[in-house]
Simulated scan of single mutants.
Amino acid sequence: MYKSFFLWIFLLVFTGIKAQELNCSVTVNADQISVSNNQVFKTLENSITELINQTKWTKIDFEEHERVKCAFTILLTEQTGTNSYKGTVQVQASRPVFNSVYYSPIINHQDNSFTFRYTEFQPLNFNVNVYESNLISVISYYSYLILGIYADTFSNLGGEAYLKTALSIANQAQQSGSIGWDNKINSVTRFTLIDQLLTQSNESFRKIYYSYHFESLDTFERNQKTAVKKLIADVILLKEIYDDNPNNILIRMMMDAKADEIVNVFRKNRGVDVAPLVSVLKKIAPNNSKKWKQIYSN
């Protein structure tokens, strides 16, 4: 009954009538670039904010308070030519946890291959059927990636349509020759990330991600002990995916978003045996070994 009720709440989220889907904070940091007109970067920041928050990405309307919280942090490291720039973009998003004030991070991804051209006051308009520019393609790609992952956390494989749109954007952008869209095995490019999310062999990952959020985190306030045990089971299932492919980029993506959350959850719930969990975490995400040690701390 609980599951049906919360699924109904999710459907309400996706059938509101007042606002666009994303509520995004955008920051453009150009401190490493020396130019005569710094105002262009503030204009760029405002233009990207408008593109994300005012574009209708889907056919579904959200209530204002239901919009997906996200952030784009753009760090410009080089001016490569007239109106041409190079840098990084970090994309973050979160989703509410049922019956709490907590927002769970669902993506925390840094893209180090961000290049684009921008002339101050040029319009940034998205057309799903047309490649306009690398700047618009990168921003729209990540907007759909956020929507797809967000929907996946509420409904099993529920973000399929949004992820496929992100793949379509990636396929179009590949023709531009801009970096970051290429298909490199075992490398995290925009194409490989969305390709891996949609490949059938990784459906088990997306199902685990759904279970982690909807069947575990969202039941936390109702039955904490059961939810914690379910979270452990969900994370341990990742070992099978890792054993099949130790370079699975989706596990890395999940750990980038979830490492701190996992530590905070299990450090405060010592009534369960965390040894099997920590053993798996050390294997699938050794880069976070210092964090996993905190699970045993007081």
Rank of each mutant, 00 (worst) to 15 (best):
N23S: 11
N247H: 11
I149F: 07
N125W: 01
V91G: 09
S297M: 07
S4W: 01
L157G: 02
V13R: 04
L157M: 09
P276V: 12
D182A: 15
Q20D: 01
N156L: 06
C24P: 07
A30W: 01
L51G: 03
I17S: 11
N264H: 09
S94M: 14
I107P: 07
A19P: 03
S104P: 03
F72G: 15
V274Y: 11
Q92W: 08
F62D: 00
K258Y: 09
T15P: 10
G16V: 04
V26W: 03
E240D: 15
T49K: 15
Q175I: 10
A71D: 11
D273G: 14
S289Q: 06
K268W: 14
E240S: 15
I232L: 15
L238P: 01
G158I: 11
F116N: 00
E120Q: 14
V188G: 05
Y150W: 07
K59R: 15
K239H: 08
A170E: 02
I52S: 05
E240T: 13
V128D: 10
P96R: 05
Q294G: 02
W181L: 06
A233V: 08
M253W: 02
R267H: 11
A173E: 00
I106M: 08
S140W: 12
V138D: 01
W292A: 12
S94G: 07
N83K: 06
N99C: 13
V235A: 10
F72E: 11
D195T: 03
N156K: 04
K225F: 07
F14G: 05
S36A: 11
D182P: 03
L157V: 04
E132C: 10
L51R: 01
I107T: 14
V128F: 11
K42N: 09
N171L: 04
R95E: 02
D111S: 14
Y212D: 13
E78T: 13
N248H: 08
D218Q: 07
T15R: 13
A259K: 14
N99T: 15
K3E: 00
E45A: 01
A166V: 02
V91Q: 01
D111W: 01
F72D: 12
V13P: 08
F14M: 13
E160F: 07
K268Y: 14
G148R: 08
K290V: 08
T82N: 14
N298F: 10
D260C: 12
T153D: 08
F191K: 00
I17P: 05
K164W: 08
F6Y: 05
F72M: 14
N29K: 08
D218E: 06
M254W: 06
S36K: 13
I33G: 13
F14I: 12
Y162A: 12
Q92I: 09
G81R: 09
S4K: 03
A93T: 06
K207L: 06
L167S: 02
E45W: 01
K86P: 10
H213V: 07
L163C: 11
E203C: 04
I17C: 15
R252F: 15
K268E: 13
T192A: 11
L198H: 04
Q200E: 12
T77Y: 09
Y2F: 04
E132F: 07
D195K: 05
Y85C: 00
R67C: 09
L237C: 09
V89H: 00
W181C: 02
E21M: 04
L238S: 12
W57M: 11
K230S: 10
K293R: 06
R267V: 06
I262H: 03
R206P: 05
